[in-house]
Design a binder for these strands. Structure first.
Lengths: 106, 106
DNA sequence: ACCGTACTACGACAATCGTCGAACTACGAT
DNA sequence: ATCGTAGTTCGACGATTGTCGTAGTACGGT
């Protein structure tokens, strides 16, 4: 598919800010995405394969916010985009953050 | 001062939800408040004693959100209200969450 | 070349949010 | 009783946000 104007930019590890990460995680849909990506693991998953109570365009919106915050990595594969959690980066920057959130009820 | 209509309600430990906590922490002013309360410790501090780039009423607003999310405890003392971090509750519910956020840069 | 799949881009919309000022209440001190 | 201090309440405002539908783009397969 195409990135069109925005070239699938990811922040480097050192560019990730706790504020943006918290903001990205402070939405129920995005939290659901993160939980799902954590469950699936390193393989990642296509955006559309996660079942969510929102439309395609809203999905894209949430995935962009997660990507720009440095929470997920997105790489194009064929016509799909595979998303993965940036576990290593997040664990290195904010050790315990992701674990505590993923361990929380719901 | 007075609680007027809202009687300074706090969620019990079991009522605290990760989503509300993340939402509460996902604001620069509120994060600043939490950092300051963590620095001060168990003694707590009056709302007005924390210097913030916002007016009194905005302070009240942010403190209410933090309180209702279960992040802080507020008790009236004289004409003031002393706020403290609910460290024990948060650490018990989401071990590592607060530590990782407080350890993060900024 | 065409079609289907997968996703992005672009408005548009309602809802929420952070902010403020002005008015109010509560408490302590004089 | 009066006054000052500390904080809350109540609109109001602009900005941001989450949502959608429609249209568009990219890629793989036939």
């Amino acid at each position: 598919m195409g990135d069109m104007t925005e070239t699938l930019t990811h922040p480097t590890r050192s560019e990730i800010r706790i504020e943006s990460v918290l903001h990205a995680l402070a939405d129920p849909v995005r939290l659901q995405i993160v939980r799902e990506l954590a469950r699936i693991g390193c393989d990642g998953v296509a955006c559309g394969a996660i079942d969510l109570p929102v439309t395609k365009s809203t999905r894209t919106h949430h995935l962009r916010i997660l990507r720009q915050a440095g929470v997920i990595n997105v790489r194009p594969v064929g016509t799909s985009r595979i998303s993965t959690l940036r576990r290593d980066d997040l664990d290195a920057l904010f050790p315990g953050l992701l674990d505590s959130i993923l361990a929380a009820p719901q």
